[in-house]
């Protein structure tokens, strides 16, 4: 136990027997670790010798000084502020807590689901259609010995035609699907494969609704199958 720590009132009990001089100085807020046997001169004198105490005790560390005198919890800037902190609006960022609806990205509700789902589908449609258009444009016959500029134009035309067609179709389908899916989730309070398949059937039917009853049913069936296999794939992975 260091000198300073004893001075500031350490709570640990002194391991060694208090000497006669220590008893004497204890009342004067001083403490010396000298024992009468080691230094007889100090035990007889009533005034402590600083030179005798200094070499014996180790150098006081900051931990010894502040460990007992200050409570770190009270030094924290937010200590004692209570729950009246109102400059963080945490309600805005609550994550979607519908059971079973967790996906790859954290979602903050149905708008996030709609945006991310539609964006992913639209982008995949764009890439898929772009590849289709690229192949089409690259293999289209352009007469004999077409120039590079002509070929490039053909490829770009194919990409922009097929890419936007696939992207737009899949994107609209994804909007229907995500809206229906979020509505079903909200109504039923949970998310499962049945919800996904019902939403898929509804969106397929709406997408093909202007072509007649039969195509609408076919579209609903195709979408249901796709959603079912996707759910099975997700459960399997």
């Amino acid at each position: 136990m260091s000198f300073l720590s004893g001075l500031f009132g350490g709570s640990q009990p002194e391991p060694q027997e208090p000497s006669a001089s220590a008893e004497l100085f204890g009342s004067t807020t001083f403490r010396s670790n000298v024992t009468p046997s080691s230094d007889p001169s100090s035990s007889t004198s009533s005034v402590p010798q600083p030179s005798s105490a200094a070499p014996v005790t180790p150098a006081p560390t900051a931990l010894d000084t502040f460990g007992t005198a200050f409570d770190p919890a009270r030094l924290h800037p937010l200590a004692g502020l209570g729950d009246k902190i109102d400059f963080l609006q945490l309600d805005e960022e609550k994550l979607n807590d519908i059971q079973g609806a967790a996906s790859v990205l954290p979602s903050r509700g149905w708008t996030d689901d709609l945006c991310v789902g539609t964006g992913t589908t639209y982008l995949s449609g764009l890439v898929l259609g772009g590849t289709w258009g690229l192949r089409e444009g690259a293999t289209r016959p352009l007469g004999n010995n077409p120039s590079f500029k002509l070929r490039l134009n053909s490829i770009l035309n194919g990409c922009t035609r097929r890419g936007s067609f696939m992207g737009n179709s899949l994107g609209v389908l994804a909007i229907f699907y995500n809206l229906a899916n979020s509505s079903f989730d909200a109504i039923r309070g949970k998310h499962d494969a049945g919800n996904a398949m019902a939403a898929a059937a509804l969106s397929g039917a709406i997408y093909k609704s202007t072509a007649g009853v039969r195509p609408a049913l076919v579209g609903a069936g195709l979408m249901t199958a796709a959603a079912g296999s996707w759910s099975a794939f997700k459960a399997y992975v």
């Binding site: 709609l114 945006c115 991310v116 539609t118 964006g119 992913t120 639209y122």
Partner: peptide
């Protein structure tokens, strides 16, 4: 980016 794509498309 995905979010913005989808949001703008929707």
């Amino acid at each position: 980016i995905l979010n913005d794509f989808g949001g703008a498309f929707s």
